[in-house]
Design a binder for these strands. Structure first.
Lengths: 194, 194
DNA sequence: TGTAGCATGTAAGCCGTTACATGATTGA
DNA sequence: TCAATCATGTAACGGCTTACATGCTACA
């Protein structure tokens, strides 16, 4: 059982006991709306693999629904799944976040690129951030004020704050690069780091 | 060639042309000091695998140094490596950062845990953040004011700003959880999300 | 003399992706 | 009727980790 397994298991919690559950397809959609922003949204194929595993551990119950010629397998969390999830939440070691930040990586090697190009990259990042922020904001609005989505709401706010903080830092870096000497020109291809 | 390959290749740039280069062991140490904070620090074994690959592409030159009975293989970036790296920096699609945030994930499922335990987790996160911040601050101090480390310095400042922003959000969440109704008590094990 | 640090690698295996394969249903 | 969406899966493979294996060197 990986963290991703628990994350997907967690998505099923929000359906409540009287729901039919979610299809793999729907699980993927929920993951795209929530998990994507601070964990990962696993590939469609991986969702099915995880569900098989969870069913194997009796943490999830699968029910096939045949309507016409099409089979839809719906997944619900079991009592055991709920207990296991709660135990994991309370007792597992909560690791430190892992960040893979290609913009920071390129900034590190800025000496090879020069402030100009670096600023282009940072501007691109600002655009991407604005786009993501919009998406997450839409998700937050979609949650409504329902008590059941109180915690997801908090997480979404966390995400928005993170995007805002990143945008501010990126803008700061943009200005810092202006002040840098040796800017405005490409270094020759054999120049060492300056 | 993965992003991690380029990241490790990038570490060699800072050695300059008149250096002997770095041993795999030293590369790992540099990665622990810098890459760790915004990319990954690959396992020792992976460092050697990556170096083999880079040497295979002629982006890195390896030189064995036999002192006594011990062999140390030192790696330097080649001209071709420098050009390839610069091209990658300028032309590769700079993806959006990927964040794996177990604290946010647990907060999402806060309904199963109750504000109390959640606050413990957030406090633990604040401790971890303070520790990381100290480490990164030490790295930044170690860089000195050498021009060669100007960009690494900027990245380190980015990291510090990120840690500070995270700490602030975590503290905000801590207070929000106080205001939440239904706190201060564990939900019964069969309670649905509240 | 023994332990921490320096130094290099191989093997097994997990997690997850992309590519592939198949087909039903809905609506323009 | 065609495309988008719903729906489920298998196969191949890549990237990375952990565990394992080996040995030197400096120093307390």
């Amino acid at each position: 059982m990986t963290t991703t397994s628990y994350a997907l298991l967690g998505l099923l919690v929000f359906e409540g006991p009287e729901s039919d559950g979610l299809s793999g397809y729907e699980i993927k959609q929920r993951a795209d709306q929530t998990l994507r922003f601070y964990w990962v949204s696993p590939a469609m194929s991986q969702v099915y693999v995880e569900m098989d595993r969870l069913v194997g551990h009796d943490l999830v119950a699968a029910l096939d629904e045949d309507s016409g010629k099409r089979r839809t397998r719906r997944y619900r969390i079991t009592q055991e799944g709920l207990i296991t999830l709660r135990t994991w939440l309370a007792e597992s070691d909560t690791g430190f976040p892992v960040l893979k930040h290609p913009v920071a990586l390129k900034l590190l090697l800025g000496g090879l690129l020069g402030p100009d190009r670096l600023q282009q990259i940072l501007k691109g990042y600002l655009d991407d951030l604005a786009e993501r922020r919009r998406q997450l904001d839409a998700v937050l609005s979609g949650l409504g004020s329902d008590d059941a989505y109180r915690y997801p709401g908090l997480v979404a706010e966390w995400g928005l704050a993170y995007f805002d903080a990143e945008a501010e830092v990126a803008r700061t870096m943009l200005h810092r690069l202006d002040e840098l000497p040796g800017g405005r020109a490409d270094p020759p291809p054999d120049a060492p780091m300056t």
